[in-house]
């Protein structure tokens, strides 16, 4: 029964990605072109492996969480705004399965990137959980804002502004509201405080967003 339900959701998932057209490939450009190219650049210009790892880790934080909103926003915006939303809302009562499928699909791409860097530089899996948590926080917030505001622009600009804030102001009191970490995850304790709270809240956000999606006028 659960298997059949998943197959049905997958049959909707494929055309939903396909309808994005060329913009579907934007996360691919970031994950598989930009980040590896920057990594190769660091390897060419730096001798110290640890500092290369640190730079790559910061690039991961800069690009991977932000790109997690791309498929969520551009894949699901037709359900909440525009000419097709009225028709789609009649046939689709919940966006939660779609959100998790899109997010899972994205994380699968991230796993491939981590595998590449694990081969090149080793010792990255400690950061994987952090990046997944940050990605879920970005994607969940974007999805929630999309469902609440019913427009693509607010979540996109909101997350872009937060991304800029996170890149520029990770110090002092501002660091408490900044998802980006200044240091790599060396052990579970680095992650648990404060990222377990972020993870818990991020898991709730999609449900909250779907609640607003289901709310009828």
């Amino acid at each position: 029964m659960c298997h059949q339900k998943l197959l049905k959701e997958l049959s909707i998932f494929r055309p939903m990605l396909r309808k994005m057209g060329a913009i579907y490939f934007v996360p691919h450009l970031f994950l598989y072109v930009l980040i590896p190219l920057l990594g190769i650049g660091y390897m060419l210009y730096h001798q110290d492996v640890e500092s290369i790892r640190g730079l790559v880790f910061y690039d991961f934080q800069k690009f991977i969480p932000f790109m997690s909103i791309w498929w969520v926003l551009f894949g699901l915006n037709d359900y909440v705004e525009g000419d097709s939303s009225e028709l789609l809302r009649v046939y689709k009562h919940s966006l939660l399965p779609d959100f998790w499928l899109i997010f899972g699909w994205y994380i699968l791409h991230v796993v491939i990137l981590f595998l590449i860097f694990e081969l090149l530089l080793a010792n990255y899996w400690g950061d994987f959980l952090l990046i997944v948590t940050q990605s879920l926080a970005f994607a969940g917030s974007a999805f929630c804002l999309l469902c609440v505001t019913r427009t693509l622009m607010v979540p996109f600009l909101g997350m872009l502004l937060y991304e800029i804030f996170a890149m520029l102001s990770n110090f002092g009191a501002l660091a408490y509201v900044n998802l980006f970490s200044l240091q790599r995850m060396r052990g579970v304790s680095d992650f648990i405080i404060p990222y377990s709270i972020v993870l818990a809240v991020s898991c709730i956000l999609p449900f909250l967003g779907d609640f607003f999606f289901q709310k009828r006028k």
């Binding site: 037709d78 525009g82 000419d83 097709s84 028709l87």
Partner: peptide, 11 residues
Amino acid sequence: YLPQQFGMFRA
């Protein structure tokens, strides 16, 4: 349902 105005995925 066929709404008065609707869009299709152009791609």
